[in-house]
């Protein structure tokens, strides 16, 4: 039979199209991704390279153009400029306040709302509502509520005989106010992620544990919490990165004040770059932010790998 096959003539050359099917698929694929890819090059990769270069230049209102100065800006930020460490300290306080509070509240709400009961939809809808609201609108309303004199919060406190502070005018209170209002705004998102994770845990585990006489707390600490670990990790990193990016909320509520008490990294970049036009220095700050976010992401990936093993 093999002989017959090889005796038959084929007409390969006359039928070959100008593109093979394989080459054609490749071309089509690049056509599909090209809008995305070109945009990526112009608005992301190009600017990312540029910001690396800017960070190595002296470029401000006085110079009006970029002069290469090597790592001078980094030296300035890390070693000389007291503002920088102040900002870092603020950002860290902000993150340390926001992340645990946000996560603890999100998990508590999720545990309460992961099983159907009368009113569950109402509560989920309520706790999630601030997430879809503009941060500016949210900050406007809270700034209004938190005014020193005549602000609603202080008027309520006055009813029980407490003289409330001038929340947004005293550095410590301002930071606390910004953190708490931000938690209220964003906790719904983490709550939803936790609910999804909780609902993905098979009921069998809990039922088996209950048959063995485990208490509610034992079931949570020995079954639910360990099974939530991957979700907790993701939420922790996302929330931490998110806390370093907070800008609009602080812009509207405190403008970085008082006495730079709420001046965090993202706001500092904006201030240096677009208010004071210190392009070189602002780019250096952007690079530092980039490194922090990357480091957090790498930590997350590594922890997740470790968790899988």
């Amino acid at each position: 039979m093999t002989d017959i096959i090889h005796n038959l003539k084929t007409t390969r050359t006359s039928q070959k199209p100008w593109l093979t099917l394989k080459a054609r698929e490749m071309m089509e694929a690049w056509l599909f991704v090209s809008p995305s890819f070109i945009g990526f090059l112009i608005f992301f990769l190009g600017p990312l390279c540029a910001v690396v270069y800017y960070s190595l230049t002296e470029w401000n209102l006085l110079t009006q153009q970029a002069t290469f100065v090597g790592l001078r800006n980094f030296e300035n930020a890390l070693l000389e400029n007291p503002d920088f460490w102040h900002v870092v300290r603020n950002s860290v306080i902000f993150a340390l306040g926001l992340v645990p509070l946000n996560m603890a509240l999100a998990l508590t709400l999720a545990l309460a709302l992961s099983r159907p009961f009368f009113g569950v939809v109402f509560f989920r809808t309520v706790f999630f509502a601030p997430v879809i609201t503009s941060a500016i609108a949210w900050a406007i309303v809270w700034k209004f509520l938190l005014q020193g004199e005549g602000g609603f919060i202080n008027q309520v406190l006055a009813l029980v005989g407490i003289t409330g502070p001038n929340w947004l005018r005293e550095p410590g209170w301002a930071m606390a106010a910004v953190i708490i209002t931000r938690v209220i705004k964003m906790v719904g998102l983490n709550m939803i992620l936790y609910i999804a994770a909780l609902q993905a845990i098979p009921r069998d585990y809990e039922e088996a544990a209950r048959l063995e006489g485990a208490s509610r707390w034992q079931i949570f600490s020995m079954i639910t919490w360990p099974l939530l670990a991957p979700t907790t990790l993701v939420i922790m990193v996302i929330t931490t990165i998110g806390s370093f990016k907070v800008f609009d909320h602080i812009y509207q509520m405190t403008g970085g004040g008082p006495e730079n008490g709420t001046l965090v990294l993202a706001f500092y970049i904006y201030q240096q770059g677009f208010k004071f036009f210190n392009v070189g220095y602002a780019s250096t700050l952007a690079m530092i932010m980039f490194v922090i976010v990357m480091a957090l992401t790498i930590v997350q990936v590594m922890l997740r790998r470790k968790g899988m093993e």
Binding site: P47, A50, V51, I241, A286, M289, F290, V293, T297
Partner: peptide, 12 residues
Amino acid sequence: MVPEEVTIIPNF
């Protein structure tokens, strides 16, 4: 993973 704040200056 890169926040908009990082590339906003060159984009400006």
